[in-house]
Design a binder for these strands. Structure first.
Lengths: 180, 180
DNA sequence: CGAATCGTTGAAAGCAGTCAACTAGGGTGG
DNA sequence: CCACCCTAGTTGACTGCTTTCAACGATTCG
């Protein structure tokens, strides 16, 4: 079993799974402070790669085992983490299975903004280091639909499209779309 | 934090999340032997209810805490479980975000068959105790699309529709649709 | 300045959704 | 025992959202 843990120190990463024919589903984006590498045994698991330059802190399986023995509450901590991840994964299932393109994009933007807020403090400015294709593969849409939806939200006065991100002109409206 | 664990002894349960407007996404079905109740802290979590009669074995949070203290490897076990669940959740994201209705239904049937096979031994007969609506809410489809897809697969000779389930007439073709 | 990549926009097609009618079981009460 | 009803499931016609295919614009980098 490959139980290496990586702690993302700086940068952004995308986690994804591929179908045999190449279709990709991004299952999450990682920000500094996030853990990676909870790969289960067997031939399962997921892939991860960097969006721009990243710094990671790697814990080998032996180093991890040593930690786990020394501090039992670390395992407890990891457990909580896994449970939180699982909850997020299930929330994303709801998004993928039951929400419209507009709701998907709005939900993504609000969620991303809130994660950034925890790191850098709140801001209506939302940097988007990932490409439109990444966003599309995260939301279960095509690149064109993502682009059109951004444009639509801009026309409606919800946001402004900037290079490398968006600015939330009407955050509450975006939040309403995300909650609905 | 509500860390009660339920062990499903007999019957079938559905786990789901709801959107404020009532849309439902079933995030998984539970079979005998499965654990439930890994609810994270805060106002998150999911709902679960029975499909038909069930028998569950409940571990209260104190009982669980006692176990966890006594046997550290139990926590380790729970951890592996959570990681497996997470992997399954991510596989389901791929299904919800990137697969067609026909692929969704075929993947569901093969997955369900394999889970039943682990409990009762292999069989081409696949009982489906859940309703079409449950299947639809699991696959991110409507009840009508599920029904039509079943009918289409029957016309194509992949399966036979029986009351309370299906029979896989051409399992390899169904597997091919599920893998594609 | 040109090439390449990324993003946007338009037109058309298609898959799944919606609305609606119909059918089939299953249980209940007369 | 049968008629009725209620729910679950199927099927049809049509709509519509998202995709597909294609062209165009913008930005970056050699």
């Amino acid at each position: 079993m490959t139980t290496s843990f990586y702690n993302l120190v700086d940068g952004v990463m995308r986690l994804y799974k591929l179908l045999p024919d190449g279709r990709r589903q991004i299952v999450g984006f990682s920000l500094p402070g996030d853990f990676l590498g909870m790969a289960p045994s067997g031939r399962h698991g997921f892939s991860a790669d960097a969006i721009g330059p990243v710094t990671v802190c790697r814990f080998g399986r032996t180093a991890f085992a040593r930690f786990a023995e020394d501090k039992p509450h670390l395992l407890r901590r990891i457990n909580e983490l896994a449970v939180r991840e699982l909850d997020q994964a299930r929330d994303h299932m709801v998004l993928l299975g039951r929400r419209s393109a507009e709701e998907k994009v709005a939900t993504f933007l609000i969620g991303w903004r809130d994660r950034l807020a925890q790191l850098r403090g709140p801001s209506t400015n939302v940097p988007l280091p990932m490409s439109r294709l990444d966003i599309a593969d995260y939301l279960g849409l095509t690149i064109e639909t993502v682009s059109r939806t951004f444009t639509k939200l801009e026309r409606e006065g919800v946001l402004d499209i900037l290079t490398g991100g968006v600015s939330l002109r009407d955050p509450s409206r975006a939040e309403a779309l995300a909650a609905a």
